[in-house]
Design a protein around this nucleic acid. Structure first.
Lengths: 251, 251
DNA sequence: CGAATATTTGACCGATGTCAAGGACCGTGG
DNA sequence: CCACGGTCCTTGACATCGGTCAAATATTCG
């Protein structure tokens, strides 16, 4: 809501994209890199707390996270908020808005964030010229779907402690891919308010739930973030089996 | 779990697909129809209650619903089940499994159902030869994502009455597209058990919640189905604004 | 008719929400 | 350096929504 978006003139060339240093991402062909270089029209830096996309609007852009964390959410008219998912480096933002008329959710930066900017209007040329990238886009959308399925299962059928354990184990998994080139892993940059709005719980109950996990030695809560001490223990509490694919695409 | 899948020799030609009679779907070019005709390798009929796809397996097929209803779900090891979404004619089943290694959810028939069968192994040729259809596939995946977002908001942040109202208003919307050629609309073919497993509620509380909606004259509960009497009233209770696009693609 | 599955209802319980208040920490301005 | 205000985290008391248990009543299908 607050925070400023500012253009950054320094710009990373796609041919030298730092994300590619991370072995979690698949390699591109030279022609694909060439296409993406032209598809990319700039970079956007936003402060923590800045709103990147707004539900109900029609965005001219599509983004990929280069560095930082953000989250997607929806709100009801009376202010109740549901966080739908988090975005980390390599994730695409606004694909849904690029294909439909209007954005159906909003996106906010959780940390200072750097985004690659693509022109929505050029997306069809991607489908026309690069079947491999088209496949990747569909893959990315299907992957998001499968994450949302997990979240639905969690919110619908797990207890508060199980839900919290699942969420933190899940975010810990994603955190592995957060550093562009294997730099030190930090804590998960969320407040308990974010956790509450993700799990569908109240803030007070979220706090009590997180303290239980901390008492069991599974996590440690920091100033505004969470350090995961025992990922396997969390996954066991939630009875969750991560299925992160070995190589994921990005654009 | 029970129920038999049986092959049906009678087969609908894509060039004469009954779904196309429904103005809700977009038109195909001749070359697209031609491609889809070859992509389609058969039809599958399944009884109500039959399992169509199973979580954890690797399916060789991909389906589009020609007629009938089904639902996608996940279960925890102790048996807790979460229904993720419903499928109606025109919806694709198994796209996620076609792109990833394994299915991350199961699919079950709610009514007797007819499916068009596609070969998973040929999907890449779709991306190579038909940018329009590739775009449509991504659109379909993004649309599913946006529906799951709505469900998450609902389960996470709405009360039991609001959730139930949302779900029934939502299914009523989808029901509009259920009849291949504008035949009479029937009730929504779910039991209260399905409603409970979709909303993340117990069966008992679901029953009491549905009776409240019935007492307000918004719905009528039938033998094993729900008749929506006042869609706008339901949407108002849930504070939900449907955003069904005017023309949706299908394959 | 009998078995299996759905729906309905009441009594009671417990997980989670609400309210209220205090403490910890941070950034800002004096 | 300190005071101050704003977030965030923490905790206890109490309220309530939704869960569990139990049992009765349809309804369908053999």
């Amino acid at each position: 809501m607050n925070g400023e978006n500012r253009k950054n003139t320094a710009r990373v060339a796609c041919s030298n994209c730092p994300l590619r240093d991370n072995p979690a991402f698949r390699a591109f062909t030279a022609s694909e890199v060439d296409f993406v270089s032209h598809f990319k029209t700039g970079e956007l830096n936003a402060d923590a707390g800045a709103t990147i996309l707004v539900e109900g609007t029609h965005s001219a852009h599509l983004y990929t996270v280069l560095d930082g964390w953000g989250f997607r959410y929806k709100i009801l008219e009376d202010g109740r908020r549901q966080i739908l998912n988090y975005v980390v480096p390599g994730d695409m933002i606004g694909l849904q808005g690029a294909l439909m008329e209007e954005m159906q959710h909003s996106v906010e930066a959780l940390t200072p964030i750097t985004l690659c900017v693509f022109e929505r209007s050029r997306i069809f040329s991607l489908f026309e010229k690069h079947p491999g990238l088209s496949y990747d886009l569909t893959w990315i959308a299907a992957r998001e779907e499968s994450i949302l399925d997990e979240h639905l299962l969690s919110i619908g059928r797990r207890s508060a402690v199980e839900r919290a354990a699942y969420l933190l184990a899940f975010l810990q998994e994603r955190e592995k891919y957060c550093s562009p080139s294997g730099s030190a892993r930090g804590p998960i940059p969320v407040t308990q308010i974010h956790v509450a709005d993700t799990l569908g719980l109240s803030i007070v109950h979220t706090n009590k739930t997180l303290r239980k996990l901390a008492a069991r030695g599974l996590i440690r809560w920091l100033d505004r973030g969470c350090e995961v001490l025992d990922p396997a223990g969390l996954a066991a509490v939630a009875n969750w089996h991560p299925s992160e694919p070995p190589k994921r695409p990005f654009i």
